[in-house]
């Protein structure tokens, strides 16, 4: 419990910002997900205690949103847009290429290093195909760019600086 101090502090800070404490639930969940990499029962109870809102209410919100996960996520979460505008420009090929490239021996790093998923529209349809890595946006994708991005990650660059 003692380790959730950052979350506790964050919540008490927000109490002076928001008049209605229910509005603190979403920011608190997001904070926890980003800070601790997950939203598990311990986190739910912590938020519940600090806001004095029953845990079941926090839980039913938390489980509704994709962002909040019970288990820790991969270090690099790659999310390729599969919606219509990207699909028209061949985003399936980007997805398949990434899958193939990261499944080659020696390319994917350790366990839970990469995850690759198809997701809905990222609001970058005019610069399709698009994908996110840990919420950093990559646009106008092609295979060469994918190679450069993967190499950049492996050489330890910050994700948002990979393509300069």
């Amino acid at each position: 419990m003692e380790n959730n101090t950052e979350l506790k502090n964050y919540i008490s800070e927000l109490k002076s910002v928001f008049a209605e404490k229910s509005t603190i639930i979403m920011p608190a969940l997001r904070f926890a997900q980003e800070k601790y990499g997950r939203v598990d029962d311990d986190i739910i109870e912590e938020i519940s205690r600090n806001l004095n809102i029953p845990p079941v209410k926090i839980l039913s919100a938390a489980r509704f949103y994709h962002f909040f996960t019970e288990k820790a996520q991969a270090r690099y979460r790659i999310e390729v847009c599969s919606s219509i505008s990207c699909s028209l420009l061949g985003s399936e090929h980007i997805y398949d290429y990434l899958k193939r490239r990261l499944s080659q021996p020696g390319s994917g790093g350790g366990k839970n290093e990469f995850s690759v998923n198809r997701v809905g529209c990222l609001g970058s349809c005019g610069t399709a195909p698009a994908m996110l890595i840990n919420n950093v946006l990559f646009e106008n994708l092609n295979f060469e760019k994918i190679d450069a991005i993967i190499e950049g990650i492996k050489s330890g660059k910050d994700i948002d600086k990979i393509l300069g």
């Binding site: 919606s83 219509i84 505008s85 809905g120 529209c121 609001g123 970058s124 349809c125 005019g126």
Partner: peptide, 11 residues
């Protein structure tokens, strides 16, 4: 919350 596929203006 801009999310409708094809839409990228509010961002």
């Amino acid at each position: 919350d801009e999310g409708e596929p094809g839409t990228f203006k509010d961002r």
